[in-house]
């Protein structure tokens, strides 16, 4: 049995530090998800609507966010704004802002796609029964769109959680950064620690994302 370097985990408070790092990553992504899901639904409804000016503005926003690599957005949001506007926000807050902007943009496009995939006949038979526009949206269109959205939005949420591994680049000490620190600190005594630590990080990410996948599968079955 080769030395996987797992023993380092048991030294001092290493495991607790790793979990603390995971909590930082989850805090950033879950706050961003909690804001971007409702905001994305709102913007998605607007993007599927008829107002051309609103649609054009949202389109520009979406394309801007989608084309930019997340890393560039993080640098722009943290270093860029500090120099340009003299803001002094913490790296974690900058990360939350960037992830929220990103999640909202992607979510709005998913919602728009789900709404316009509902056949026109559904609107018409609802109106023919006397339901007004708001009732049609609320009782007919959105419930059907939500069912189509589940797998797509779950994918987005797990992507947002995973992408927090980038925020160490702006100095946030999250789980990956903690792992690197532990590896560095034990370079002499446990040269194999890298494997064990990264394996642990892998398992931690898996444990964070797996329940969300389970929830998605449950909802898909229940709402089929």
């Amino acid at each position: 049995m080769p030395d996987l370097g797992l023993s380092v985990l048991l030294k001092g408070k290493n495991m607790a530090r790793l979990l603390g790092g995971l909590w930082v990553a989850l805090r950033i992504s879950l706050i961003a998800v909690a804001i971007s899901l409702p905001l994305g639904i709102l913007l998605g409804v607007l993007m599927a609507g008829k107002n051309r000016v609103v649609k054009a503005i949202l389109r520009v926003y979406l394309e801007f966010i989608r084309i930019m690599p997340q890393m560039v957005l993080l640098f722009l949001g943290f270093f860029g704004t500090t120099r340009a506007f003299g803001w002094n926000i913490s790296a974690e807050l900058a990360a939350i802002i960037v992830f929220t902007l990103w999640g909202t943009a992607e979510m709005s496009d998913l919602v728009r796609g789900a709404i316009i995939s509902i056949p026109r006949h559904q609107y018409e038979s609802s109106q023919a029964l006397g339901l007004n526009k708001r009732q049609t949206y609320f009782y007919i269109i959105l419930p059907q769109a939500a069912r189509r959205l589940i797998p797509l939005s779950i994918n987005l949420i797990t992507r947002m959680i995973k992408t927090t591994s980038l925020v160490l680049m702006i100095g946030v000490v999250e789980v990956l950064k903690v792992a690197q620190q532990i590896i560095e600190a034990n370079r002499m005594t446990s040269p194999n620690a890298a494997f064990g630590l990264y394996l642990t990080v892998f398992v931690l990410y898996f444990l964070a994302c797996w329940p969300i996948s389970l929830l998605a599968r449950y909802l898909e079955k229940k709402w089929r």
Binding site: H121, Q122, E124, S125, S126, A128, I140, P143, Q144, W223
Partner: peptide, 10 residues
């Protein structure tokens, strides 16, 4: 009543 029924699938 429409040609394609248009019941609400959900």
């Amino acid at each position: 009543v429409f040609q394609s029924y248009d019941l609400f699938p959900h």
